[in-house]
């Protein structure tokens, strides 16, 4: 039963540090705190306010929804920019 108690302790310690989720961001696996919003992720990656567009699980996340769209475990995210092309 020791390990069970231990994991319960870890869980309570996590109240200030939310559990982590795994997402796929531009094809790479990333671990993020569970309450991360799209905006939070963009801020964390120095992309907030930049000319980027975000797709989550194949659906566009409009700019106006970045703040209130909270990421979930297993999400597939694409963040794109315009680059030189013909």
């Amino acid at each position: 039963m020791g390990p069970v108690l231990e994991s319960a302790n870890v869980f309570s310690a996590n109240e200030t540090f939310p559990p982590m989720i795994q997402i796929t961001l531009n094809g790479q696996t990333e671990s993020l705190p569970a309450t991360t919003s799209v905006l939070g992720l963009l801020e964390n990656r120095a992309l907030a306010g930049k000319r980027v567009a975000v797709e989550r699980n194949g659906e566009i996340v409009p700019k106006g929804r970045h703040a209130d769209t909270v990421l979930a475990d297993g999400d597939r995210l694409e963040i794109v920019v315009a680059v030189g092309g013909g």
């Binding site: 964390n44 120095a46 992309l47 930049k50 794109v80 920019v81 680059v83 030189g84 092309g85």
Partner: peptide, 21 residues
Amino acid sequence: ITVAIRRSNIGQNPGEPNLLD
């Protein structure tokens, strides 16, 4: 003028210049 759409850097290259700027 035409542009292509590609994956952004995801923090590995902060401050990267943006074509649309």
